[in-house]
């Protein structure tokens, strides 16, 4: 344990070719972190919308703009990427989809499904 690291290190993220599972995994972390950072904003909107009819109207007005819809699409993407990735991890915990082929296919499913459901949520709201 006293010997210094002798292993070669190669951590240039732009040159490493990451398997799709790694992309989905990074995405799970980044989306989770951004979702956590959005909690106070969500609480602020919830608080304001419940406080008074004026507050409700204000929040409803904010949520109808084009910028709000772009934000909602982004939020929906983060949310559903994270949810689908979570389902995938729970399944893998239960030994379902552990084989490499299945795991790669489900990772692609998470990436695509997150974008699709995020678009649906952002456009539908």
């Amino acid at each position: 344990m006293t010997t210094k690291l002798q292993r070669p290190r190669f951590l240039d993220l732009l040159k490493i070719h990451m398997p799709v599972g790694a992309v989905a995994s990074f995405g799970h972390r980044i989306s989770g972190l951004l979702l956590v950072l959005s909690i106070p904003f969500g609480l602020y909107l919830l608080d304001l919308s419940l406080r008074s009819p004026q507050g409700f109207a204000q929040v409803a007005h904010w949520l109808t703009g084009i910028g709000a819809h772009l934000l909602l699409i982004l939020l929906g993407w983060l949310l559903f990427h994270h949810l689908l990735g979570g389902i995938r991890y729970l399944a893998i915990d239960m030994d379902w989809g552990v084989a490499r082929d299945t795991a790669r296919r489900s990772a692609w499913g998470v990436l695509a499904g997150g974008i699709l459901l995020g678009l649906l949520m952002g456009l539908g709201l």
Binding site: L50, P53, L79, L83, I87, L90, M121, L125
Partner: peptide
């Protein structure tokens, strides 16, 4: 994992509520 299961059940319900039954006014909300 336990919290994940609750969030997996509740969050889609919440999103679905806003998609299909958005609150019409402050009182209903």
């Amino acid at each position: 994992r336990v919290s994940a299961v609750y969030l997996l059940l509740f969050t889609p319900l919440l999103v679905g509520k806003f998609l299909f039954y958005p609150p019409p006014d402050h009182t209903a909300w």
